[in-house]
Design a protein around this nucleic acid. Structure first.
Lengths: 187, 187
DNA sequence: TGCAAAAACTAATACCATTAGTTTATTATA
DNA sequence: TATAATAAACTAATGGTATTAGTTTTTGCA
């Protein structure tokens, strides 16, 4: 079935993710990736639909890792504790994989079935975690949107060095989350 | 002093912003911009430090527009009303200038003095708006970070089509903000 | 053993940014 | 008014990029 074994999609995507995390996402080119893998760049078209296809695979891979990581973090927790655990796991992923994270939330083709499925899974985790608060469905959707927006914005701004003093960012993350949760408990 | 008058930095940056908003930020190339302006692409180097310099100018221009827009929106308001006005103006800008907004929060060189000054001005507006709540300084910084993160994350996710149902996003924006403000009033 | 398919390859094309060196037009000065 | 300096355009050339087409090679299976 497969000649020239030893090079498959996971290997390619992981190599690309490593470039993204260590050198930045604009260094992820078919040329640099091919060089890292010891092949010529047109050969990549046998595994991936060009640069656009590679980026989509990276987005799927990142979303999968992120979702798994959050699922692990949430294990056995509920309520406010679970919310804080999600936030911590989210930030830990963004910090450990800066390039991959950036590609994760920037799917060139958000209509892709696999990407959409993982994205929905992440939303479902949050919806499920909020269940204990007994909110009605519409409000739950609003709150989840706010939570996602906050986490993504925080990770994104931090990654770009947008927060002046770097020592207190974790404190900010928690304080803001607590403020949000207090508001939630009072509404 | 200036031969061949008629082409200056603002003209160039506005043309580039138009490309970004109508065709997407990856269509902003020196080639496409030069064509739009009726010149050859190397001529752009007389006004801008290459593609990187162009992107920096776009980020500065966008940040300036955004800050002015928010300043206008806040006029005469205070407290919760001012917070909601900031959020509305922020989202209005991101929606009216999708490409420029994306470039605004992605300065290739965040150390640039002019860019940093506008960014600080935006933070100052928020700090000032929160003054009426009488929070201590540290908490104010945390809350501003949360506010910025939320707004950026919301705009960013919406732009990528990350919210499933598009009809209720404004409702989400307000609801979440209200929840956040309730938490603020109770802490 | 031979055949088909998959995955590598080479060669070529088109687009892009960038640099170097040249021309041209405008402004300021003598 | 004529001339020199300067800024902004230009052409030409280089190197990097993705991508396509067509070819070779290797592997698995009949």
């Amino acid at each position: 079935m497969s000649p020239r074994i030893g090079l498959d999609l996971p290997t390619i995507v992981e190599a690309a993710a490593e470039i993204a995390d260590t050198s930045g996402i604009e260094e992820v080119t078919l040329a640099s990736l091919a060089q890292k893998l010891g092949i010529r760049s047109p050969s990549l078209y046998n595994h991936v639909n060009g640069l656009k296809g590679l980026r989509l695979q990276l987005a799927i891979y990142g979303l999968k890792l992120l979702t798994e990581s959050i699922n692990d973090a949430i294990n056995g927790k509920s309520g406010d504790e679970a919310i804080h655990a999600i936030a911590a796991a989210y930030m830990a992923f963004a910090r450990a994989h800066p390039g991959l994270y950036e590609l994760t939330l920037r799917a060139p083709d958000a209509d892709d079935v696999e990407y959409a499925a993982y994205a929905q899974a992440l939303v479902n985790i949050m919806v499920e975690t909020l269940r204990v608060y007994g909110l009605d469905y519409d409000l739950t959707i609003h709150i989840v949107r706010g939570f996602r927006s906050y986490l993504h914005g925080f990770a994104s701004i931090e990654q770009k060095g947008g927060f002046g003093m770097p020592q207190a960012v974790d404190e900010s993350l928690k304080q803001v989350l607590n403020t949000y949760l207090i508001g939630l408990h009072h509404s």
